[in-house]
Amino acid sequence: MSELVQDKESVVAATTSSFSNTTPTELNHSRTFLDARTEEDLISGLRKEIEAGRLPPNVASGMEELYWNYKNAVLSSGASRAAHAVISNMSVAFDRMLLGVEHPFTFNPYHKAIREPFDYYQFVHTYIRPLIDFKNSYVGNVSLFSELEDKIRQGHNIVLISNHQSEADPAVISLLLEAQCPYIGENIKCVAGDRVITDPLCKPFSMGRNLICVYSKKHMNDDPELVDMKRKANTRSLKEMATLLRSGSQLIWIAPSGGRDRPDPSTGEWFPAPFDSSSVDNMRRLVEHSGAPGHIYPMSLLCYDIMPPPPKVEKEIGEKRLVGFHGTGLSIAPEISFSDVTADCNNPNEAKEAYSQAMYNSVNEQYKTLNSAINHGRGIEASTSTVSLSQPWN
């Protein structure tokens, strides 16, 4: 936990090199947070940056709130060097957030993870790893992930249809597969909503992922004046995805619910949000028309406790960042054939709905197994005939 991906001097050296069109004055990035050695240094640094006019008060307030939440979560793990990890990880996180405010990064419709000169991918892993209780985390059918890697290397396209629980989902996928299938984590391309590429507290973490950037249907009409722009942007992203699939060897993760899962307001129980059948069908048709062999697998995630979303969908950017230390889960099931599911359907719309429901049912069943293992304390014994749980990092 105490290991940093890069020492602070290497972070300074890489500070603005990954940004295009920088000027000599832009290279004078503040060292306030990288020089921090204590909690007091970090918190007073926020005040210093506000006074210098480099950090808006509302962003600084969000950063401070994140610090306290992250600290409480990591310390609750009981790890021997948890306090050191908090200061180390938050100092680099604050530095990246400040840099993003000073020199805003713009995401292309298809964004490739920035790995140098500053490795944002490993930065995310270092930050998220202390939040995962690996003793109470499980992967379902891990051997299937190894099979995916073989198919991708052979030129096949793979699409993972999944639920979506937190901003940490991509990192959870990578970290739970890091020991046995690191290729999956490094090569997965996530279909991401605009909020994770616009929120200043979230952008540095998004920069470390391969992203296909879209505007979520849930937020399409938040501002009527931007609807046309959002639709055109989504069309560009769709074309980028089609181009990628035509080249083969692609691994794409999409959550067709259009957003994160939310708990049942009456019971408080979490469950995968219903899928949008049009989103599932669009991916299916893109895969079928790519010209390369393609496969679609249902995948399930359980990790809401480490970064739970707001109880309700919010219009405004800048949600509160709650953080926790908890077990997480990831599972995958065999691919579902469209022709097998829809053989008895009478029309295309019925077939579309049937296929989407089959995907959702599989994700939901896997989720129940993960929930039994993690939240109900059954562990490996929660395995079923279709979901074999393991801890591949042990």
Rank of each mutant, 00 (worst) to 15 (best):
S30P: 14
E314K: 13
A13Y: 08
E353D: 15
S390E: 04
F105A: 14
S277T: 12
C181F: 09
E26S: 12
D41C: 03
T22Q: 10
V313F: 04
D344K: 14
A36G: 06
D222N: 14
P24T: 01
I188A: 15
W253V: 05
R262E: 06
N58T: 11
S146H: 08
K312H: 10
H103D: 00
G193E: 01
V142T: 10
P334H: 00
M359A: 07
H295R: 14
S249E: 05
F271N: 09
M299H: 00
A83G: 04
N72G: 12
E381Q: 11
I296A: 11
E65S: 15
V142N: 00
R246A: 13
I114C: 07
A242S: 15
S76H: 05
L34S: 06
L370S: 01
I173Y: 05
D340E: 15
L322E: 14
V5H: 09
R115T: 15
F118W: 12
P274D: 10
E26P: 01
S372D: 14
R321I: 13
S146D: 07
F271Q: 14
G100H: 13
S76E: 11
E288P: 06
S339Y: 07
A36W: 03
I332G: 02
S372K: 09
S162Y: 02
P298D: 04
C190F: 15
L302H: 09
P224W: 06
L176S: 08
